[in-house]
Design a binder for these strands. Structure first.
Length: 231
DNA sequence: AAGGAGTACAACCGCCGAGAA
DNA sequence: ATTCTCGGCGGTTGTACTCCT
């Protein structure tokens, strides 16, 4: 059923296509007054001829404060690759770890650039990480996650932290719940370190696929990894 | 200069789950 | 217990832009 019943007016249907600046302003004004949510109501009360879902998407991907526009940095790219290896196409989860970036943006970036780039580099045979709800729930329910969440509330949940001052001082690194010991690429061991990490990740993915493990089980074996906020 | 191919990104669609009625 | 609405997600499509021939 979804929202289709509220999306499509019997007579003329919803307006589609590119949003006008005036439409954006209507949404901004309404949300300023009434807060986020009730997208269908927003659409009806403001006379926007957009379906609620469309309004929501516009807000989340474009109008919302804290959105970072512009090129994805190398750090962010690396992060996306690693998170994708772990989580598969769970764009909202991945986006939740990259402040200011939206799931749509990351999905687009992956599909239009990274996928091809990684295939060219032979780093990726585009692993089809199964959409396995149980794995994610196991990870999210671990004690490690809870502990990390308590330590650093910025790292939890799917919501992008919209504290711009916080962003300025923490940049990308804070968003990752998976943190490696510093890798020294200048002392000749960098490649080995990368290989080791890649190997570890590959094994990790295989383990996840083979059996459903609780994230907290990994930590004793791999102290260099903190599975702080997989969800 | 023209137009076809490739790319990037915004937006839409269909499905699902949660919660209210 | 059932139905309905809404919010959320991932996949896909549409379109504007850029590059190449």
């Amino acid at each position: 059923m979804g929202e289709s019943s509220t999306c499509y007016d019997k007579n003329e249907g919803p307006k589609k296509g590119v949003w006008a600046a005036s439409e954006d302003q209507i949404v901004r004004d309404y949300i300023k007054k009434h807060g986020v949510g009730k997208w269908g109501k927003l659409s009806r009360e403001t006379g926007l001829k957009r379906c609620g879902k469309s309004v929501r998407l516009r807000w989340l991907n474009y109008l919302r404060p804290g959105i970072v526009r512009g090129n994805i940095t190398e750090d962010e790219e690396e992060l996306i690759i690693r998170l994708h290896k772990l989580l598969g196409n769970r764009w909202s989860l991945i986006a939740g770890r990259i402040p200011g970036r939206t799931d749509n943006e990351i999905k687009n970036y992956w599909n239009s650039r990274l996928k091809r780039k990684l295939q060219q580099q032979n780093h990726l045979e585009v692993p089809e990480v199964p959409r396995n709800k149980e794995i994610r729930e196991d990870l999210s329910s671990s004690a490690a996650v809870a502990a990390a969440a308590e330590k650093n509330p910025h790292l939890t949940g799917n919501n992008v932290n919209e504290d711009e001052d916080y962003h300025q001082h923490h940049d990308v690194d804070f968003a990752v719940g998976i943190e490696f010991e510093a890798t020294d690429n200048n002392n000749g061991t960098g490649d080995d370190e990368h290989l080791r990490n890649d190997l570890w990740w590959n094994n990790f993915i295989m383990d996840l696929n083979d059996i459903q493990l609780d994230a907290s089980e990994f930590q004793p074996d791999f102290p260099e990894i903190r599975l702080g906020n997989l969800r």
